[in-house]
Amino acid sequence: MTRELNIQSLILRSASQLLLPLLLMFSIFLLLRGHDEPGGGFIAGLVAASAIALHMFAQDIHQAKRVLYADPRDLVGWGLVFGVISGVPAIFKGQAFFTSQWLEFTMPILGKIKVGTPLIFDIGVYLVVVGSVLLILLTLAEAED
């Protein structure tokens, strides 16, 4: 089984170089706006994972891994850590685990910004989804070689 995984298409290769940063930025955008508009950790994570999967097809696995910086297994772990940590502050306030906590900032340009534990949780979800999907796809693709 030595079928070439990457697709020999110049257009795709060039396009993926351009698309990848755009898609990743878009995924961050989806993650951050998810609390108010359609989006959120699951969707953003899937978009990021698809972007890197596309890159994997257009270039090769090593390229895709380089883009990711981290090992997907670590991403899964960190995601779960974020998810659990976001529930902890409530305990110190004597509330049930996972009761959301909010802090309000006033920033010069952006105006009022609210940061809360649900955002941390959503980041955790994001990391787990990216990590899991890529762990599955990269492992499968590597097995192909």
Partner: peptide
């Protein structure tokens, strides 16, 4: 949060 689905999830 204004996206109710997401508020439920997170």
């Amino acid at each position: 949060g204004r996206n109710i689905v997401n508020v439920i999830l997170v």
